[in-house]
């Protein structure tokens, strides 16, 4: 996945059975963001692989004050890249 400066990883082991998965997102390179991220803590959240889109979560993160509106695309893309990898791995398992 392209280095967006925003890192997204699994926050739990993925056994491929549940449609929701816990992810953790944090800023590795603040210089790549237009806005100034609030703090560099890791943000943990659950994501529904079937019902939700990465852009939904990115927008909610902006609305919750974690990121500036101008960074919603970078955050969405970072989540999308990780979710794509999870779904690819799951398809390989099946």
């Amino acid at each position: 996945a392209e280095d967006t400066g925003v890192r997204v990883e699994l926050a739990e082991e993925d056994h491929g059975r549940k449609s929701t998965i816990a992810l953790r997102l944090w800023v590795e390179d603040p210089k790549k963001l237009k806005g100034k991220p609030k703090d560099n803590g890791a943000i943990e959240f659950t994501f529904d692989l079937e019902k939700e889109t990465p852009e939904d979560v990115a927008q909610e993160m902006v609305e919750s004050g974690f990121f500036h509106e101008s960074d919603v695309k970078i955050v969405g893309k970072s989540i999308r890249d990780r979710v794509a990898l999870i779904q690819w791995r799951r398809s390989r398992i099946r």
Partner: peptide
Amino acid sequence: SLNAQVVHSAGRRFIVSPVPESRLREP
């Protein structure tokens, strides 16, 4: 303060926890 929780109006919970130092300075 870290380990804070923010619940978005749509109901999603965001839990903020410290990033392990080692992960912050990854190349």
